[in-house]
């Protein structure tokens, strides 16, 4: 089933639900746990036997990490930096299983990898400067 179809189907189910209702919907033999932050909905699809309340906590955990990383995160941060949102998720979950309960550790690991990218960038630009000078 393609990503877009899942989103469309779930939006139909979730967006129509009122504010005071529970955060769980049953969907195609699974459960979807969703949580709303302003205009953003975070959804996680889980098996029947998973702990729904804990999944709510995991979603909140993720949002707090995002918030700390972007500095009061908003929708646009996530749209334009979708890759970063994924990198953070990959430090938090692997194949849906929780990897790290400490927000601090996740932040530290992401920062370390971001700085690796920065270093590579600087090296690349200095190399290109050298090449530019050499080819003058």
């Amino acid at each position: 089933m393609c990503f877009e179809k899942v989103i469309r189907e779930l939006s139909g189910v979730i967006l129509t639900r009122g504010p005071k209702l529970c955060n769980f919907v049953e969907w195609r033999g699974y459960k979807v746990v969703y949580k709303r932050y302003a205009s953003l909905y975070f959804c996680m699809c889980i098996d029947q036997e998973d702990n729904e309340l804990e999944v709510l906590e995991i979603i909140h955990h993720y949002v707090e990490i995002l918030d700390r990383y972007f500095g009061s995160v908003c929708e646009l941060d996530l749209i334009f930096n979708f890759h970063k949102a994924y990198y953070i998720l990959d430090e938090l979950l692997i194949a849906g299983e929780l990897q790290e309960p400490s927000k601090k550790t996740v932040a530290r690991l992401i920062a370390a990898q971001d700085s690796l990218v920065e270093t590579a960038k600087e090296e690349a630009s200095s190399i290109s400067n050298i090449i530019a000078q050499a080819t003058k």
């Binding site: 749209i79 334009f80 990218v117 590579a120 960038k121 690349a124 630009s125 190399i127 290109s128 090449i131």
Partner: peptide
Amino acid sequence: ALHSVNLNELFTYCWDMIRAIRA
């Protein structure tokens, strides 16, 4: 000419596309 790997450029351009799509 040898191109430089400029990662800033990468996401600037990706941002441009996202902006265009959002518009």
